[in-house]
Simulated assay, not measured.
Amino acid sequence: MRFDIITVLPGLLESPFAHSILQRAQKKGIAEIHVHNLREYTNNKQKSVDDYPYGGGSGMVMQIEPFSNCIEKLQAERVYDEIIFMTPDGVTLNQEMANELSGKENIIILCGHYKGIDQRIRDIYVTREISVGDYVLSGGELPAAIVVDAVVRLIPGVLNDETSALSDSFQGELLDAPLYTRPADWKGHKVPDILLSGDPVKIENWRYEEALKRTQERRPDLLD
């Protein structure tokens, strides 16, 4: 799977992709993550990518030409399944969406900055708009990293235990049950006896009941 991320701050994405699961996925050749500096696709000597908004108002707007130049160069090299724009007014990312995207082959992600991007970029090129929550960040770089992380970990071969991702919160529309590991007794705080019973049926039933209880308490909207 290949991700091409277009941004004015490529350095901001160096660390998220250079560690842990994402690093391992790239070393295995399971995922490719390429970060493109938008300023390299400008048509002016100043390498500026923004200008004042038509109609007035505060802030600066990212111009269409740099994005167009970069997107069309990439499209000339391969076919892309999705061109995603990270924006607070997009569809909120969830596990179902991550599952769907993990079946794609090539994805471009556009990172906005400043006040926003020229609407024509969204109208002409973007196939999907994604939000990571009802709040505004300084740019789309961190949300892009979140999308890549959520998707790549689902690709077969990335996790050492592939069944782990299938039991994560939200995979079965429930939050995950409480988790425990050694020691069984820590300063009087004990692991539930059922988990030490060795009975897989009873343990699975306990985990389901606990997951249902936790979901009812914390995210009843998932049950609705």
Rank of each mutant, 00 (worst) to 15 (best):
L101Q: 03
E72S: 12
A211D: 02
C111T: 11
P183F: 05
N69D: 01
D81Q: 12
V126K: 11
G140M: 08
S164P: 02
R120P: 00
L110E: 01
E96T: 15
P143F: 04
G198D: 01
F170H: 13
M86Q: 04
N106S: 09
L101T: 03
V152D: 00
L159N: 08
L74W: 03
K115C: 06
V201N: 07
Y180W: 09
Y114C: 05
A150Y: 10
W186V: 03
Y208Q: 10
A144S: 15
D149A: 11
K115H: 14
K73W: 04
K104E: 02
I146F: 07
S138Q: 12
V201P: 02
G198M: 08
H189D: 01
D123W: 06
H189P: 00
G139K: 07
Y208W: 07
L74S: 08
I107R: 12
D176N: 06
P183E: 04
H189N: 13
Y208T: 13
G116K: 12
I83H: 03
D161L: 05
D168I: 05
L159Y: 10
G116Q: 09
A211I: 08
D149M: 04
L137M: 15
G140K: 05
G139V: 10
W206L: 01
V201L: 12
P192N: 07
R214N: 05
Q171N: 13
A150R: 14
E173P: 01
F85D: 01
A211V: 10
R122A: 11
P88F: 06
S102K: 09
D168S: 09
Y114E: 00
R78S: 15
D161R: 12
V191I: 14
N205R: 14
R153Y: 10
D118Q: 11
N99P: 03
F85N: 03
D123V: 12
F85L: 15
D193T: 14
N99Y: 11
Y125G: 02
P192L: 06
D168Q: 08
A184D: 03
E204Y: 04
V152N: 04
L195A: 09
Q75A: 11
D199Q: 09
M86I: 15
S138D: 05
K115T: 07
V191S: 02
G157M: 07
N205F: 03
L142N: 11
V148L: 06
L110D: 00
P200I: 05
R207Q: 15
D168V: 04
Q171S: 13
E210M: 15
D149V: 07
L93A: 09
I194C: 03
I108D: 00
A145R: 13
L159H: 12
N160Y: 04
I83Y: 01
K115L: 08
L137T: 13
L110I: 15
K190I: 06
G157K: 05
P192A: 11
I203F: 07
D168N: 12
G139M: 05
D168A: 04
V152E: 00
M97Q: 14
I146R: 10
G103N: 15
N160I: 08
G140I: 13
V158T: 14
E204I: 09
H189L: 02
E209A: 14
V126I: 14
V126A: 09
R207L: 07
N160R: 11
E204A: 13
R122G: 02
W206D: 00
